[in-house]
Design a protein around this nucleic acid. Sequence first.
DNA 1: CACCAAAGTGTTATGATATAACAAAACATA
DNA 2: TATGTTTTGTTATATCATAACACTTTGGTG
Lengths: 155, 155
Amino acid sequence: MSFPNPRHDHGRCVSGALKTAENKSRALGLRFTKTRRKVLEILWQSHSPLGAYDILDRLQEDGRRPAPMVVYRALDFLMEAGLAHRLSSRNAFIGCSAPDDHHEAQFLICDQCGSAAEVEARPIAKAVEETAASAGFRVQHRVVEITGICPNCQN
Amino acid sequence: MSFPNPRHDHGRCVSGALKTAENKSRALGLRFTKTRRKVLEILWQSHSPLGAYDILDRLQEDGRRPAPMVVYRALDFLMEAGLAHRLSSRNAFIGCSAPDDHHEAQFLICDQCGSAAEVEARPIAKAVEETAASAGFRVQHRVVEITGICPNCQN
DNA sequence: CACCAAAGTGTTATGATATAACAAAACATA
DNA sequence: TATGTTTTGTTATATCATAACACTTTGGTG
Ligand SMILES: [Zn+2]
Ligand SMILES: [Zn+2]
Ligand SMILES: [Zn+2]
Ligand SMILES: [Zn+2]
């Protein structure tokens, strides 16, 4: 919901996210395969967005690095399933922190530590709706990515 | 300010934009060189964002296509000068329609005809500010890009 | 004018991000 | 097990962007 304290128990973030993903996939009849799980786990290893090729680097287990397609396909799955998001302004990806409702998120991205927070910002969504409406525009997707300095980096 | 009527006098958009750019450059002591002018003119040839390589294609005059650097450098200049914007969600560029005040714009982008409108959306900016403030986040840049169907394409 | 420093351009090379296409394997289910 | 569907592996290629360096233009200074 916002920037996590640097000393939080991050292991629980990861295990919680994986557990939720598993449940959601089962509920929707989707196949949460080994690669997909591994990619989501890598995404959750930090609260910073990761580039596809960074994920690739961390994906090699037995010294053999898979082809880019592998990771892009897994990311496509995760995004379709509402388990991850893409940050256009960074060409990077991050695990969704509210996968229960299928949504389009807004992000705050720290230029200093690189971490990103997915925010529930009803007022932003509302303002966007109204602006669009007054231009006679029918909204399909929203990209809202704010960069700056996070609370943890302001000291 | 919003989506132009398809039958508007687009020649005036182009000549106005070039004239304004010239004035602004002179006022700021910047050099509005031939390449920079040409790139801005190409950007303004439509109200749709253009990829850097599309611009390159249109830049070849005597059959010789310049190297990508040429166009990226011109775009960097135009963006620094507040004469053009980059649309992250499309990897594309568009002429700024309000170059007088130096701002960060929000965009409505039509998925059907590809045209984009720069909107002055104070409420969006305000909502972003407030959301960030309540998360203790200090805002530096905003990316707000909304896709959907423009009024001209809704029939 | 002759000089110089700063800004801009041309060019080659390379880095970074993303997708196309097709064969092989795994899976679901009947 | 037979069958069609989904997922994976792999090779190749498309698309977007920057590094580095030599050369040219520009605008000021003596
Ligand atoms: Zn965490
Ligand atoms: Zn930070
Ligand atoms: Zn116009
Ligand atoms: Zn349209």
